[in-house]
Nucleic acid binder design. Structure first.
Lengths: 232, 232
DNA sequence: GGGTCACTAAAGATATATCATTTGCATAAA
DNA sequence: TTTATGCAAATGATATATCTTTAGTGACCC
């Protein structure tokens, strides 16, 4: 197939009215699940042609993603999917933990039985996805599981920051899902739900930390083990 | 860039700036110091004309700022400076504290005597700015003081998130600087420097928390005291 | 008075043309 | 061979024209 770009972008189900939004969400999704390798160039014209739009809305989408740290603008003005090194990876994992613990704590007072049921439902769907090895779906469901909790806080302002971190960790999500590590993840989801039932802030935090450390944290360490400087 | 004639034209650049970048930074600055009131509409054409550019780069700048949560895109696609309510303000202050404590802790191992001297220098400049009531400069210096510290960590990935929060708190920065509250702030800077000298993580964190709570935190509470729903 | 519709003006969204910069490559010079 | 030079192609940046959506206004009907 003639794709002057070097990756395939899965099409997005929901409809976005404007072109720039459609492009934005499509790229964002791809980055979130690590579908585009670090270092890949995001040339405006090529993308525009591939996606069937003019350069203008594509440019806007790229700018947005750059501002969310999901893409990197080089000195020569080219835009690429960023590399990160082991040190930055550690910082991002720590950030995820701090941000998500905070988000969970602040959401806790607003957690209802209905919400917990919903999370249990998502978790159950994840269990099925694991046995069927639907890794792409797992990634999305995992994010849903977390998002539903944090968004319970009506004054929440932290989600955009968390999503920025998720985006930067995108390539490792893919790694995580590809391995059997998904088990750990699901286990910790049960812990999280337990902590919610107990309305226990401390327990909730440590469950989330464990979920992150033994999920994507471990996957990242495996990936970064050999590489010296930079990988994803 | 060699000139095929006799001379080389020295590149003034190094900071060659594109139209979209110029607009972006100009707006960003204005938002950061609260120079634009919440609710103000950011019409593309009007801005473009005012700034002497075409709509295209202005659009890009607005999109970037929207993605950093510094601007809000309404359902009707108009872009405005966002309002926030008291609850959101509290969340943002908490976020600042958590993010900046983390950033400071992770920077601490990289803090050198030279860096501390630099921070002392900035703080001294702030003292002078306070007595001369240069409030605009104070805002910038205050940010510099914090940024210099957090950026000491070479793997730092948290600055963009912190800046997003600063942007959202922009209007309150203005309030803070307008009042006598600047004193508190400078006091706590001395504490921060003390903690750095002692290489004391705990002390550093509490100094930063105090700096934030008694600086912008207090200013915000004053401003939001009367208003019920939303203000800035 | 209240509501609907049509029309107009304003503002956003996009496509396209053009300008500017960067990169690659071929060729020439050292 | 290596380095410099100078197009030419690729790519980003911007201005502009045009299309689409939204908001506002007034005529008209009930």
């Amino acid at each position: 197939m003639v794709n002057s770009t070097q990756f395939d972008l899965p099409e997005i189900s929901g409809e976005y009215i404007t072109a720039h939004e459609a492009v934005y969400h499509r790229l964002r999704n791809a980055l979130m699940v690590g579908a585009i390798k670090p270092g890949t160039a995001m040339a405006i014209r090529a993308l525009a042609q591939y996606l069937g739009h003019s350069p203008t809305p594509v440019r806007e989408a790229l700018r947005r993603l750059s501002s969310e740290n999901a893409l990197q603008v080089l000195d020569n003005r080219r835009i690429i999917v960023p590399f990160i090194n082991a040190g930055q990876f550690d910082e991002l994992i720590l950030l995820r933990i701090k941000l998500e613990c905070l988000a969970a704590e602040r959401a806790l007072p607003y957690v209802s039985q209905v919400l917990i049921e919903k999370m249990i439902g998502i978790d159950a769907t994840m269990d099925r996805a694991v046995t069927r090895k639907h890794f792409d779906m797992l990634s999305v469901l995992n994010q849903q599981f977390h998002t539903v909790l944090y968004a319970a806080n009506p004054n929440q302002t932290v989600m955009p920051l968390i999503e920025s971190v998720w985006l930067q960790l995108g390539p490792f999500h893919r790694q995580m899902m590809d391995k059997t590590l998904s088990y750990y993840l699901v286990d910790h989801h049960k812990h999280i739900i337990g902590a919610l039932n107990n309305r226990d802030k401390k327990e909730l935090c440590s469950a989330i930390e464990a979920d992150i450390r033994e999920g994507i944290g471990r996957a990242g360490q495996e990936v970064l083990a050999g590489t010296d400087a930079k990988y994803a």
